[in-house]
Amino acid sequence: MKISKAVITAAGPDHQHLPLQTLVSSSGDTKTVLSLLLDEAFNAGIESIGIVIAPGTQHDFKSAVNGHLEKVTFIEQTESLGFGHAVLIASDFVGSDSFLLLVGDHLYLSSQESSCMRQLIEVASQENCPVSAVQATHESLLPYYGVVGGKRVSGNPRLYEVETILEKPSPTEAEQSLIVPGLRAGNYLCFFGMHVLTPSFMEELARSSVDSSGRLPLTPSLDANAQNERYLALELEGRRFNIGEPYGLLRANLGMALAGPKRDKIMASIIELIAATR
């Protein structure tokens, strides 16, 4: 399986400006969130990216892509009809290819040489099936994520066979159907905001129906896909920053800075700041 396309969703009413925020990268450059995402994706072997945006935001997005404009396609979601809908309208862009799905309000920091996106793409190419990036997450954060239940693939401690996926489950539901053997008690595999999806998933998504609020969610189609074909989850060696959370951008900025060459300087500043405040 070759993965050369990516889709970034950035049209949600509460999230559409988040990719445009700027921060200082690990290497010390000031960049937008979107630009950092694009850098990582192209470095991981992606050749073209479709960005799903809200109407009227294209101008701002164009100025935020930082030199990648020719490899980017903007797709307008005219109505805010859910995450699933945002992905579905990228169907023409992805065509019959498998693709990498990203969300515009997350940043990633790998703890190994290979970036988070590259780790995911490599596994998906190797296993020739859809793969979602996941992270073991404490149950107190269940209200924020899609959660995967399954079992470990033998021989690879970070790879899981997906059996069930639920969106923002209650801890009770999670304990009943999402426990993954081998994880610490009270921890679940939560989505990392990064998936490699296949054409069959897009077919499944096209067949699925909207929920009671008229929106098309993504998770039920992912769950249905898991029932129909081999679907894996990969626990990545890296960290995710959700810049949509309160202080999310600050945390992302600090995370990036502390992973770069200016680590000591940043640490000293933080300590100074702590000492100066009560």
Partner: peptide, 19 residues
């Protein structure tokens, strides 16, 4: 019983997963 266990682990308001 599965579905009851988490309640015995939760010891701080910030960890309350119910909404």
């Amino acid at each position: 019983v599965r579905g009851n266990q988490w309640m015995f682990r939760m010891g701080h308001p910030a960890n309350q997963p119910l909404r």
